[in-house]
């Protein structure tokens, strides 16, 4: 699993990247009450705001970690947004992106680098 400084995680399955937000991000947001996942077919670039996660207090953007095409969104989050809190790196995934360049995933932080990054916050 790889990570961004905006606290998204990416897990490669073949040439498809599963994307979600990290435990740290979920804890910072608090109780998630609404998730807006990207539409299937959407073409995204790294850093594009492509999803929104809402707590009681505020809406926060989620950024595309890599370039590619959204091929699937986790529609279960519509009725169970709290899954983002209870299982952010598992059932709380946001969407799947068919990646243009796998090297973009490799270039992101690994677990050790992300942990070191969190320690600086």
């Amino acid at each position: 699993m790889r990570f961004t400084k905006d606290h998204e995680w990416v897990r490669l399955e073949g040439d498809v990247a599963v994307v979600g937000i990290t435990q740290y991000a979920a804890d910072q947001l608090g109780d998630v009450v609404f998730v807006e996942t990207p539409e299937v077919g959407k073409i995204v670039s790294p850093g594009d705001s492509f999803a929104v996660v809402e707590s009681v207090k505020a809406a926060s953007d989620v950024y595309a970690p890599v370039a590619g095409e959204v091929v699937e969104a986790n529609t279960d989050l519509g009725s169970a947004p709290e899954t983002v809190n209870s299982d952010p790196t598992g059932a709380g995934w946001f969407c799947k992106i068919k990646v243009a360049d796998k090297a973009q995933v490799e270039a992101l932080m690994d677990q050790a680098s992300y942990d070191a990054f969190l320690a600086t916050l």
């Binding site: 608090g30 109780d31 009450v33 707590s55 009681v56 207090k57």
Partner: peptide, 11 residues
Amino acid sequence: PVQYEGVLAEH
């Protein structure tokens, strides 16, 4: 303090 345990639980 904006929250202790969590906004929903506190509400």
